[in-house]
Amino acid sequence: MARHAGVSAMTVSNVINRTGRASPDTRERVIKAIADLGYVPNQSARRLVGASVACVGLIYSAVESVFVEATLAAVAVVAAEKGIQLQIRSVEHGATGDVADVARDMIRKGAQALLLMPPYAEMLGEQAGSEGLGVPAAAIATAMALPHIATVRIDNRAAMRTITERLIAQGRTRIAVIAGPPRHSDSLARLEGYRDALRAHGLPVDPRLQAEGDFTFQSGLAAAEQLLNLSQRPDAIVSTNDDMAAAVLWVAHQRGVRVPMDISITGFDDTLIATRVWPPLTTVRQPIRDMAAEAMEWLARAVRHPDRHDAPQDIVLPFAMIERQST
């Protein structure tokens, strides 16, 4: 940290502990280094960077997903900027245990607030007992308001309807979907958005054109095989995340199916993988960094003023459809 701030270790100690002398410029550089590096050694440092919450517990699903990795990175950057320590706990993919037990353990170990991702956001947010945890909780990337915790999200249903309608406008009429796991509210909302678009334009909702994955690349491979094996192949496939859409591209290339001439393919999230495949994916962009920042701000306010947060907030941020060569 001293090297990052361009000062001596003794100067860093003096600024953090408010001992000795330091010029305003030096003090500002040390405070910036603390935020940049996420180094929060004690309560004095937390006061320096103005954080009202010292430690946030983050619970997420241990699934191989570019979106999960990008979200973890965004939360870590926001926490570092705000001088907040993160206590991170992954829960095995598909685990059915009580997420409240995990939350209570994190609180015992110092978490003053909780930040959750699907499906554990829904699992905890729908439990009346979550109010008894004694700390504020927020969720990012869920698809609906939850009764007992704050939520920061996009309108997943409207986003999937928008991207499906774009395919319809391009003349696609046999549009298939790869849904995510049903325990994820965002997956269910995206599936409904796809159906909304078909119904609005007089196209049938054909169950044969629906496959289910679990947001992983591997599950996308199986779903793509299922859909491309149909006797009447779809002329478009909308995937409920980028990982599964990338898998569809893989299978299409293997079979000699041309994208987008023979079939259009779309993803969701606009993660790094969307621009690392060929052709690059048309997708929906979620503002991950903004969602993380909004959630952290809400948690900080809730810790600072617990009496002023009677009801959890539901913050809906704008999404964007990003059109690329896969359509």
Rank of each mutant, 00 (worst) to 15 (best):
T11A: 12
R289M: 06
F217S: 06
A158P: 12
I168C: 13
R255F: 07
M296A: 05
S231P: 08
P147L: 12
L48K: 13
I149P: 02
P260H: 11
T11P: 00
Q112F: 00
A176H: 07
I163W: 11
S326P: 09
V66G: 02
A103S: 12
V7A: 05
Y39D: 11
E81Y: 07
A223L: 01
D98P: 02
R324Y: 02
K82Q: 12
V56E: 02
V251N: 03
I59M: 08
N156F: 12
L230C: 09
A311S: 05
S23I: 06
V30C: 05
V30K: 03
A158R: 15
F215Y: 14
E28G: 08
R208V: 10
R304Y: 00
G256K: 12
L281E: 05
D214M: 06
H253W: 07
L299P: 02
N14Y: 11
V99H: 04
A100C: 07
I16K: 03
L58Y: 12
L86R: 05
Q87Y: 09
I175A: 08
V251S: 01
T327K: 00
R199Y: 02
Q170L: 15
G202E: 07
S264G: 12
E64I: 11
G125D: 10
R108A: 15
A200V: 11
A189M: 13
